[in-house]
Amino acid sequence: MSAITASMVNELRQRTGLGLMDCKKALVESGGDQEAAIDHLKKNGAIKAAKKAGREASEGTVASYIHMGGKVGVMLELNCESDFVAKNEDFQNLARDIAMHIAAAAPVAVSREDVPADLIAKEREVAEAQAEGKPAQAIEKIVEGKVNKFLSTVTLLDQPYVKNTDQTVGELLTESIQRIGENIKVRRFARFAIGE
């Protein structure tokens, strides 16, 4: 195992935005391998973020984003636990980035639970019609697969994040919870587009 140097810890800190001790511990546990350390931190961060997800997020900000010369606009309420974090530049930038994502990707709901039942029913009908003629035991799997695919494209938390399509907006929030240290939730949004 190679010695863990301050520059290695600093590089990992720059890449992840996490504290020095977390970065050093991850490097020690991964034998100095930066990529393995990042994987370790992601796994740990997801656990820490999950613990924070149960805490109440009653502070926050309302962010707006206007795009395409005033043709598309978004208002977003992003919540956190404290007024201190709500005023933090990192949190404010996160809110603007999510509002920009909403302008570009046009989700219909924050999460799967928020998608209107009639919209899901319509999608299920379309999927059943498309699966017609297939073996009976396969139809249900085909329909469920198509409905799940539909939900992943219309719910904000399941959509690939427009600035980094390797992660979903939900994963972006989990990463932000880990970095900022408080529970963060998208409470609601409204997207306006001329002619829609």
Rank of each mutant, 00 (worst) to 15 (best):
A106W: 02
R124N: 09
D83V: 12
L78Q: 02
S111E: 08
V28I: 13
F84K: 06
I38L: 10
P107L: 05
D118T: 14
A103V: 01
V110M: 07
V115T: 04
V108Q: 15
T61W: 05
E144I: 11
T61M: 08
V143H: 07
V62G: 05
L94S: 00
K122H: 11
G145Y: 07
P116M: 07
L76Q: 00
E113S: 11
A127R: 07
A57G: 05
K149P: 10
G133P: 06
G60H: 04
F150Q: 09
G133F: 04
D33T: 09
A136I: 12
K71I: 12
V108G: 13
E59L: 11
E29P: 02
E56L: 13
V115Q: 05
H67S: 06
A63E: 00
V62A: 08
A136H: 12
I102C: 02
I38A: 08
V126E: 04
Q159G: 00
H40E: 11
Q92A: 11
K52G: 04
K52I: 02
H40C: 10
V147W: 05
V147S: 06
D39L: 15
E144C: 10
S82T: 10
H67M: 08
A136S: 13
V85S: 06
D90Y: 13
P135A: 03
E56D: 10
Y65P: 01
R55L: 04
A106I: 06
A117R: 14
K122E: 10
A104R: 00
T153K: 15
T155H: 02
F150T: 00
A129H: 14
S64M: 15
I47T: 14
R55A: 02
L94N: 00
I120T: 10
S82P: 04
V143M: 08
L41N: 00
G31R: 08
D158R: 03
L151Q: 04
A131C: 09
D97R: 09
G31C: 07
T153N: 15
K87S: 13
A136M: 12
E56N: 12
A63H: 03
G32C: 08
C80K: 01
V115R: 03
T153I: 11
D83T: 13
A46T: 12
A99Y: 00
K122T: 13
V110E: 01
F84R: 06
Q159S: 02
E140N: 14
E81A: 03
G70V: 01
M100P: 01
D39I: 09
E29G: 06
R112W: 13
M75V: 10
T153D: 14
L151A: 05
